[in-house]
Simulated scan of single mutants.
Amino acid sequence: MAISMMRIGFRSAALNLERSAAIISSTSVNSSQVKNSIHTKPQCNGGVCYLKEKPREQRDLMERPVSAICRAYSKQHGRPEEGRRKQDSDSDSDSDTECKGFDRSEFWRRKMRTVHNILDVDKDGLISYNDFLLFAERFKNLGHLDEKHAQEFTQIIKLTWEEQWGAVDPYNFVTVEQYLEDMHHVLNDKSLKKKAHRWLPYLFKAVDKDASGFISVKEFQLFYECLGLDHEHAAVAFAVIDTNGDGKISLKEFVKLGKDFFFTEDETKVSKMFWGPLKE
């Protein structure tokens, strides 16, 4: 009797092993499927459970490099993929740390957050094309730009938006993190870097009240007014950036300071004062 029971036990174990082999064979699980099935929920059919394979688009996202994932992020926020591909093809950077300026200093990131806050004219936490228009209107409303320069200014603002953020659309907006990513991308692209901030001369002409080709501390205060900043901050900043102490800033100096603010991570540069107190 004992021998019979042992035979029955061995036969039962063998049947279980055959069933297990059949299950494994039918699912055909390979190493790549296991990798793609992490964090997925099992689907059970009777007493057998299978791991549901991820949708194709999710598997593609997992297999893409960090820079490609960042581009997908931008596309979701209104940035056209076609334009972004063109920018990437011209880029000097092969770094996968392009996303959100991860390889930039915290000092540089603070500067970019400062400008994002200035360009966010309606203070809703996002930059839209409407914010760009409101920003431009503040300077044009000073009344110091002639009709030709005012039209050129409006056109350049529109062109800048389209080149950096895509369609002129009320639902196309730029978050702080996307602004950091995009400005980091500009610094790594010679073509974009050369064209970036070409509206700076128009800001100068708008506040150069007497059209002298120089701006005084009083005129620099007009500049800060249009940025939404107070006169006290303007006086302090002007005293710092007027390095030769002659009480005036030329167009060339103004544009260089404005660009250096974006391009340098050197905390000793006086250009850090150009766009007002830095945000934390």
Rank of each mutant, 00 (worst) to 15 (best):
A211Y: 10
G46Y: 06
H231C: 12
K41H: 08
A239H: 09
A14V: 02
P65M: 01
E177H: 15
S89Q: 10
P277H: 07
D88E: 12
R11A: 14
S74W: 10
P80I: 06
S128A: 04
A196M: 08
F139S: 01
G166A: 05
G247R: 03
Y202R: 12
F10V: 07
N36T: 03
E219L: 09
T40Y: 03
S25P: 00
Y129F: 15
S31N: 06
H184F: 10
D260F: 03
A235W: 04
E63K: 15
E280P: 08
S20I: 13
R56K: 12
L251C: 01
G9I: 12
I118S: 01
H185Q: 15
S31D: 09
D246V: 09
R59A: 13
G47C: 04
S91H: 09
K140L: 10
A21T: 07
L15W: 11
E267V: 05
G245E: 03
G247N: 07
D88N: 09
E253A: 13
Y202V: 05
D189K: 10
H185D: 10
I249P: 08
I215Y: 07
I8N: 13
L15Y: 05
A234E: 00
S91N: 14
W161S: 10
H77N: 15
E147T: 07
R113P: 00
T40L: 02
H144S: 07
A211R: 13
V174H: 01
R19E: 02
R113Y: 02
R19W: 02
E98A: 08
Q155P: 05
A239K: 15
A68E: 08
P170L: 14
K279G: 01
M183G: 00
Q33M: 11
D246M: 08
F238R: 06
F214Y: 15
N30W: 01
G245H: 05
R104N: 07
T264Y: 00
V66D: 11
L200E: 07
A13G: 04
P170N: 15
E232V: 12
S25W: 05
F263W: 13
G46E: 03
L134S: 14
N244D: 14
D131L: 02
A13S: 06
S26Q: 12
E137R: 13
A68V: 03
